[in-house]
Amino acid sequence: MKSIIVTADDLGLDPSINRGILEAYKNGLVTCSALLMNAPSTDEGIAIAKDNPGLEVGIHLSIVEGFSLRNIHSTITSKTAYFENGICLRRDWHDFLKCYLKGNINFKELEEEFELQIGKFKSHFNTIPFLNSTQHLHLLPGIWKIVLKLCKRHEINYVRLPKMTFPDRLWLNKRMFYLLPFSILGSYCRFSLRNTQIQTTDFMVGMQFSGSVTVDRLKFILSNLRTGTSEIMLHPGYHSDYLVKQLPTSYNNFLWEDELKAATSLDTKFYIESNKINLLKFSDVNTTEV
């Protein structure tokens, strides 16, 4: 039996992204969406989630690319107010990782930031069914320790963890060596989930073509699914000049509209139905091996 959970990341980031995610849910394959609590269009994202209870919404923990809810300059913030005039987290993963590797990130500040984001989410929703993060930075040692503690504290049952499997055609592309560290870190994180109530899906796919999942690439992903439950990460939306300008490192080459087409394609819907692939939410999955 093969099952998929199709998650749209970045709900709340921008009106153009919110609109695409809503369309991908109503007319496509998206069953879940990861909501940012510190983005320019978070309030609209919250409203979309409340107006569409069939869309399962979890938290997209913001480590970079958003306002700092602590609202004070610190080791986790940028000197540049790239979103309006607020105090912002570090602008991209390059900047964050450089500071992280130098030991210049204060983990206490980061934990306080995470607590504020989680608290804001819980002020609007009863539960947090799943968690992932911007640029998958929650996998980094030290940060993962904080995330694991917070998942236990706030009863977050699912967390996104990549897993590279061999032989697997999905990983054989030009991004393989870039993604290898994520897979290694993901395997370590999976091991640390043993003897906890926190789960992850058997497989996580979509990173191989992040920001450029076309109809053909999604069909390729579906045709190479393994037995078990796989989370497919997508970024459906409409092009945003604002995001490209403000966050060029992250979004300069993103093809949101291609991913929206993939999520709403009749071809992909037909492939799923004809191959009897189950389309699930996180809350539909009872047990998952880590």
Score class of each variant (00 low, 15 high):
Val64Arg: 01
Ser210Lys: 00
Ile184Arg: 10
Cys189Gln: 04
Met37Gly: 13
Cys32His: 03
Gly206Ser: 04
His73Thr: 14
Lys219Cys: 11
Ile76Leu: 14
Ile76Val: 14
Gly86Met: 08
Asn224Gly: 05
Lys269Pro: 08
Lys174Gln: 09
Glu23Met: 14
Ala8Gly: 04
Lys50Pro: 14
Glu259Cys: 03
Thr229His: 00
Leu131His: 01
Ala8Tyr: 00
Glu231Cys: 06
Asp51Val: 02
Met1Tyr: 08
Ile156Trp: 00
Ser41Thr: 04
Ile128Arg: 10
Val244Pro: 03
Leu101Arg: 14
Lys120Pro: 11
Asn252Cys: 12
Ser230Pro: 00
Phe166Ala: 10
Asp95Lys: 09
Ser62Lys: 07
Lys276Gln: 15
Tyr25Cys: 07
Ser210Ala: 15
Ile4Lys: 05
Leu247Trp: 05
His94Trp: 06
Leu131Gln: 02
Ser78Leu: 08
Ser223Trp: 00
Met176Pro: 02
Arg19Cys: 11
Val64Ile: 15
Thr200Glu: 03
Glu259Tyr: 00
Lys145Gly: 10
Glu109Gly: 08
Ile146Phe: 03
Thr227Val: 11
Leu222Tyr: 02
Asn106Lys: 07
Asn126Gly: 14
Ile59Leu: 15
Ser68Ala: 12
Trp171Ala: 11
Met164Tyr: 01
Leu29Phe: 00
Lys122Ser: 12
Tyr158Pro: 07
Asp258Arg: 12
His138Pro: 08
Gly103Thr: 12
Ser62Glu: 14
Phe83Ser: 04
Thr214Gln: 06
Asp284Phe: 02
Leu137Phe: 01
Thr227Gly: 11
Ala47Glu: 15
Leu161Cys: 11
Leu13Gly: 04
Ile76Ser: 12
Val57Arg: 03
Leu148Ala: 06
Glu111Cys: 11
Lys98Tyr: 13
Val6His: 06
Asn278Trp: 03
Val244Met: 11
Ile46Phe: 09
Lys261Thr: 06
Ser3Glu: 15
Val285Leu: 09
Ile63Leu: 15
Tyr82Met: 09
Lys50Leu: 15
Leu35Gly: 12
Leu116Tyr: 06
Val30Phe: 00
Met1His: 12
Pro248Tyr: 01
His138Lys: 02
Thr165Asn: 12
Ile232Met: 00
Leu279Asn: 07
Glu115His: 07
Ile72Pro: 03
Asp92Gln: 06
Cys151His: 05
Arg190Lys: 13
Lys245His: 11
Val30Met: 03
Leu110His: 11
Asp43Gly: 02
Ile59Val: 15
Glu56Thr: 02
Leu193Trp: 00
Leu69Arg: 03
Cys32Lys: 02
Leu97Asn: 08
Asn253Pro: 04
Ala49Phe: 03
Ile272Cys: 11
Leu179Lys: 03
Ser265Leu: 13
Leu260Pro: 12
Ile146Tyr: 05
Asp51Ile: 01
Tyr178Asp: 09
Gly119Thr: 08
Ser41Val: 01
Ile118Tyr: 01
Val205Gln: 00
Glu23His: 08
Phe166Lys: 09
Ile17Phe: 02
Gly119Leu: 05
Thr77Ala: 12
Ser133His: 01
Leu13Asn: 08
Gly119Ser: 07
Ile156Met: 05
His73Leu: 13
Asn173Ile: 02
